[in-house]
Structures are given as C-alpha cells and as structure tokens.
Write a protein that binds this DNA or RNA. Structure first.
Lengths: 349, 349
DNA sequence: ACGGTTCATCGAAGCGTTTCGACGGATATC
DNA sequence: GATATCCGTCGAAACGCTTCGATGAACCGT
C-alpha cells in the first residue's frame, strides 16, 4: 500500500506527525522538536511546521507520546467520597485543580477512592498518570503509607499525622479556630462555643476538624474565656438540637463559632426560632466558603475556606516536583476572617 | 546490552509484557491473548501466564495499549461549571459516572468546559478518550453541533432542543413538574405556585428548568387549578422575597412546588417566619435529591433526582455504543414522588 | 584555504502493546 | 492412511511519538 493510500484509509481526523512532516517538507524529528522546544529550530522552519500543523489540524496522539516519553501529562485527583464531606467545597477544589492543571498542559483523571489502594497501583504501574493529588486527607490516612511505596509524585490537600517526605497544603485550621476565638473574645464574649463537624468526622480523626477544635479551645483558654466544643450533624433537627444543647449546658453562651457548611443555615434558623437576634444578642462566626456566608441572613462573619487557592497551589507544587524541583513539606495558608452582620459591633454581650 | 541487563536498568515496578512472557515461557502475543481473551488459549497456559502476571505484578502500559489498539479505555466527563448549578447534585452524577465507568474497566477524565470546543477536539484527536459524557446539557447547547462534527461516541445527561442522532438520558422533568401539580391538586389545593431555579438559569434556557415549569403549568391548567411560576435565587433574602412575592401576588396560594435545591431551606424558613405551618395550612413539594428532602424540617415531600441512576445509565449506554451497539435516542426516567411531612394529609386547604 | 565550532536538521532505534498470518500437531473425514 | 479441519501458539509488523547520534552547511580565526 502506498504511503498516500495508507493515510487516506484512516478515518479523517487522524493526522500523524509524519503527515505534518511531509506537508512541511521536514523530518519527523524536526516537527517533534518544534513542538517540544527541546532543540533549536530556525524561525523559518518553525513557522512552516506550525503552519502545517494548523492547516492539517494535527494533535499528537497521547498514547504514543506517553509511550515514547514516559510522561502522560495526566494527573490523578483522588477524592474519597466519605459521608460528612461537603460537596460544594470539594467541587471547588476539584475545579480549581482541573483548571490549573490545564494551564500546566495536564489533564485530570478523576479517581474515587472506592477502588482502594489497588486503583492507585494500577494507575502508577500503567503509567496512566504522572502524579497524584489527594484530597480530604485524614489524620491517619491509609493512603499515606501507600504513597511512600509508590514512588509517584504527589501532593496532599490536608495534613496527615506523619507528613515526613510528603508535600501537603492546607488552610491553617488551627489558626482559623483561633481566629474565631479571638474575634469573639475581642467582641467581649466570655462564654463561647464551637459547633463542629458531624460526629462521624471526628470519629475518623479527620485532620481539619480536630485542628480547628484544638485551635479554638486553646486560644479561648489562653484568653481566659470559657469555651465548649460539640459536634453537629448536617440535618435541620440535629443542628437545632445541638444549638439548644449548647445553650442549655453552657448557659450564658453568647458567642458561637460554626465549622459546618451544611448546618450553618439550620443553626441560624434555630437561633432565630429561639428568639435570639443574631448579630445583636448573640454573635456567630463560621468557617465556610464565601458564597455560603453571603447567602445566609444575616450574612455570616466567616473565615473563608480558600478552595481555589489551595487547589492551585497543590497543582503548582506537583508540577514543580514533576520537573524535578523540590517542594516544601507543608504549606499552611493563613486564615482571613471577614466580619459581616452576624457578629457586627454594637451588640450587647 | 543484554536482555536481562536492559531490564534491570529500569526502575522497579516497570514490568512489561515481555517479562511476563519470559517468566511464563510463552510468546508475548500469547500473554496478550490471555489478557484480552480474543483467542483461545489452553487452560494450563492461561493459568501459568496468570500466575506470572501475579508474581511479577504486571500492569499493561496504558499508552502502549492505546497506541496499538486505538482504544484508551478512558472516557471524558464534561461538566460546565456554570453559576446556578447545584454542586451536590452534580457531584453525585460525577461519582456515579466514575464508579460505573470503573466497573466497565474505564477511567474518567474530568473536563471542565472552560476550555471550550477546542478542549474536546484535542481529546478526540489525541485519542485521549474513547467517548464523552456531557452533563448539564442546555436546551441550545453549543457543544451539541460540535458533537456531531467530532465522530466520537457520546451520551448526554440532559436534553437539548435538537437531539437527532444523539443519545440522551434525563429525568422526565416535565412529568416531574406534572407530578407536583397532580399531588397538590389531589390534596385539594386550587391555587398553586412553582418556585423555580434562579432567573439566570431560565435565561440560559436550560432544559430541565423549562421542562419542569411547562409540565407543572400544563398539568395544573389541565386539572383546572390556578398556577403561577416564578424564578427563585439561591440566597436567603431573595428566596424569602420570592415566597412573599408569590403569596402577595397570588393570594390564596396554599400549594407550593420548589425546584431549587439551594433555596428549599430558605423557603421553608420564610414560610415559618410568616406564621405558616408547613404541612398543615400550606403544602410544599420539592424536586431535589433525597438527602436534601430528608434534612429539612419538616421533611419535604419530593420528587427525587435520581442522580446515581442517571449516571449509571449514561455510562452503560456509552459502553454499548463503544462496543458498536446502537443506543436509544432519548431515555427519560419516570419521576417518583415521595410524600413526607411537608404535604401530609389532613390539612385544611 | 583549512581544521575547529556551532547550528539546523535528519535518520533510525526504541517505547510496550495488539493483531494478523503462519505453522506445527491433534483429531476428524473419507 | 492420506487429507482436510481445528486448536493452540508463535513471530513479526504495525501504532505514533521522542530522543540520540550523525551529518552537512555556514562561520570563525588564522
């Protein structure tokens, strides 16, 4: 079969690098070098090749590329789908990761952790992905030891108990909890409470929940105010119960921190139902994404969860590791507290 | 370099099919056939090869495989990240798709549509993916014409205006709207209203919003009851405003259908604040995922959005198309309405 | 005008699979 | 007992790309 005949026999849209080379009148390797920039190519040839690529609509075959170069230009995003996780937040991480990865010329493979360790092994051994981004990392995460065994580049979003040799990024939740305590203390509240994640999340020892709680309680203690912390489920009835429980068991509580995106609305509703004026006789500050804080009534003072920022950083770190760079072990983003109506000034304490 | 030397030089964990063949004492092609089952292999050889694979920890190289076979065993999940979309629902689709795909031995590439049409072209031309699952399809979706041009297998979750030649699955939102109207009518309500998606969603002519509204209004008309339909934003203040607006402009309205997962909580809160007893003097039925309906207080009667089911079906249809099968053009899932406290019986109408 | 550089390009050897045709050895057919 | 038929296996040719060493042309200093 002739060269031309072979080409025409394929389905249209399958243009190879050889076609481009032929069209531009250069060698295959030249085209490759134009694309990768790994060798010097004269400007005139460059332009000619680029033009041919455009004319023919050439796109390199990802499989062939990864076979020859041992790089797939794909990263895996591993997100365990546990109960108690807040989907909107997760989704924001995910999209930030996806978008940033594209900016670095990588695609994103979605891996739900239901496959378990073998899933990761398969991806690693099959050269499907160059690196891993693990989300929602637990304090004692079963994936962490596997990571060490796997010799694949990875970045964790979240902090495990033993992070040696790993690259982790996260919001500094301890500082966030402390910031809430500080804020309430500065408003003059002397009895405060933290409504946290669902009990199951603490049971798992998820890093961020425990770190927030510790930061909150320690800072409150340091400032000499009384503080309590209770878990809080996601549904309306349980959240209401938690609110009543706190108010009953810790009478005189006038400052509330809420670290539960799903329950925050229920908490406000219950406070209202109990006759409290949020922002007047009781102050509420939340740790949650910005849009949640702004959608409630009254708008919530909050430490925002910088999902986009974290996602971007995670990808950037992974890319630098893939290029042979070294990455810091742990990156903690400082919390920023935004004051809104729910903890305005001028309230009786 | 000797054969053995070459092998030892590679990083551990990179076992090739040739290694397996050597270990089992068979030809490379035999191993391949054992794996693919495309030719008959004697049971004894099969077992020997399988054992070698296990011992060596062999995983085929995805790139090489896709190069040789023209199949990548990866599908793309395209989800546009528009405002007004409800993340928890989207996420449930996404995970259902991911899990089902794995059951069919495929991985899932996450594609946010921010890249636009060129992103899809790149994936198609680069043989990165075998097929496409498009989520959140609009009535006049710009991706639809592209799909026709692309000659890639695809399945849409959602219904576009012109679905000829395409495979679509979705909840039958018109029937869902109608079911809500029926339910309220059967409870004896004669003035009903639909609180819908944010205005921007109707502005985009997103299929599911318009179909629900049409179904609701038509069925109400058919049953001779008065019905109104208004959009509803996601935040507390706007949702409350929408509720008051409906009650003011359509006095005597006692039945409410809500098709907005994010606003549903705010709507209930406002009704309560206005002194209404939901489930007694006003009936509410929602179109939303089960967990949302169960988390409110009172629990909501609802038509549930079968995200998992839709995701599974979409993947199953895609797989059958990839295997050369034919797929139905349009699959509409019948809605199921579950009655809960918010529209109990025994209420004064 | 001649070795030594540097620059731009080429040719070919892989990379790890799949798949097709070929080929012995049993088994069935007459 | 020769011939056709299968069955199980093998060898080799793709697949489309990257990368390394080689090659020729142009340029330098002398």
């Amino acid at each position: 079969m002739t060269e031309a005949g072979r080409k025409r026999a394929q389905r249209p849209g399958s243009v190879t690098i050889a076609d481009v080379a032929g069209h531009a009148g250069v060698a295959v390797s030249t085209v490759s070098y134009v694309l990768s920039g790994k060798r010097m190519i004269s400007e005139t040839t460059r332009q000619r090749v680029l033009a041919s690529i455009r004319v023919l609509g050439y796109h390199p075959h990802a499989g062939a590329r990864s076979l020859a170069s041992k790089r797939s230009n794909v990263i895996a995003m591993v997100l365990p789908l546990r109960s108690g996780m807040h989907m909107p937040v997760l989704m924001r991480f995910a999209t930030a990761v996806a978008i940033t990865a594209r900016q670095h010329d990588h695609d994103v493979l979605l891996v739900t952790a239901d496959e378990g360790p073998d899933g990761l092994r398969r991806l690693a051994a099959g050269s499907m992905v160059d690196g891993l981004i693990l989300m929602d990392v637990e304090w004692e995460d079963p994936r962490v030891p596997l990571l060490r065994e796997l010799d694949l580049c990875s970045v964790l979003i979240g902090i495990p108990s033993d992070g040696t040799g790993l690259t982790c990024v996260d919001l500094d939740f301890a500082a966030a909890g402390a910031a809430c305590a500080d804020h309430l203390a500065e408003l003059g509240h002397t009895r405060v409470a933290l409504l946290g994640a669902p009990a199951v999340v603490y049971g798992r020892d998820t890093g961020f929940a425990r770190r927030t709680r510790a930061g909150f309680l320690e800072r409150a203690a340091a400032r000499g105010i009384e503080a309590a912390a209770v878990p809080c489920e996601d549904d309306a009835a349980s959240a209401a119960g938690a609110v009543r429980g706190v108010l009953a068991n810790h009478p005189g509580t006038t400052g509330l921190a809420v670290h539960n995106e799903a329950a925050v609305g229920h908490v406000l509703a219950e406070l209202k139902a109990l006759g409290h004026k949020v922002g007047r006789d009781i102050a509420v500050v939340a740790i949650c994404p910005e849009d949640v804080a702004e959608r409630t009534s009254p708008a919530l003072s909050s430490v925002l969860i910088p999902a986009e920022d974290l996602g971007e950083r995670a990808v950037a770190l992974l890319m630098s590791k893939l290029d042979g760079g070294v990455a810091p072990g742990e990156t903690l983003l400082a919390p920023r507290l935004t004051v809104r109506e729910s903890s305005g000034t001028g309230q009786s304490r």
